[in-house]
Amino acid sequence: MKRRQTTSIVASTCLVLSLAASSFVLHRTDQLRPQATLDEVLFLGSPKVIKRASLGYDGLMACIYWTRAVQYFGYRHSRFAASYNLLAPLLEITTHLDPHLVVAYEFGSSFLAPKPPHGAGQPERAIELMNYGIQNNPADWKLYYDLGFVYYMELNDYKNAAETFERGSRIPNAHPFLKILAAQMAQHAGEYETARMLWSATYQTTQDKQIKKNAVEHLRALRVDEDVVHLQQAVTRFGERTGRLPASMPELMTAEGFAGLPADPDGHPYKLTPEGRVEVRVPDDFPFATRGLPPGYTPQPKFHSDQP
């Protein structure tokens, strides 16, 4: 009995130690070969082959590939990657396995379309994906909305955006703002106003917290862009009137008759550089802003509360 007990203790100790040792060695080996990850490998690239290989359990396979696409995008996005080579194939496989997985089209297009580091910078692949989604889910108005969004935001293609929003507005139960968007696209009306409407609609129609936060960031950036354009126009007017640049923001404020110091959405007053450029105080707080940033500034993704 005692002998058996000793054997059990020795065997248990060996088991635990060997497991720990093998894990340690594997970890060290992984460090020796940093490229040896599954990150950039797609062993099977054909959606048809994968569908066949799934033996009819294609729904589960689609979920697995969708999760892989999310992880791939998230990992590269967090490292400000400049390329997302596997993203489009992963999304293509996902949607071929389950053409009704609407979430893959909605999020997929927002991963694919924006320029790096916010996305893969492949708006044409996003459009292909959305068209495939619409073909398989013609009654889902949100897919038309997302497609129109890509046309407008990434390609500035007003004609196709208007046509897509218009097609979407004809779907039963479609949100009424699609009709308004279609009309605004058709007239190329107020760029900021339209963009604000699109992001507000995105905020209101999604349940996902990340999408909400993303919409909030864009709405904040839009306000900064708009403010900076107005302030920059005020600086130009001041220069034309006085023949010099305003020395400070209060001087500009007094000359233009502003009620108070103009401030960004966080309440920080805009600053005026000696060269007459209007800038935000904390550029990192507005990763999607296109104006009011110091020259050569690279935006760092940073999210605030999910309230606009």
């Binding site: 729904g59 999760t67 997985l101 979430v103």
Partner: peptide
């Protein structure tokens, strides 16, 4: 993942 919790449980 994103928005597929229920789908995954069923699938």
């Amino acid at each position: 993942s994103i928005e597929i919790e229920k789908l995954v449980v069923i699938n």
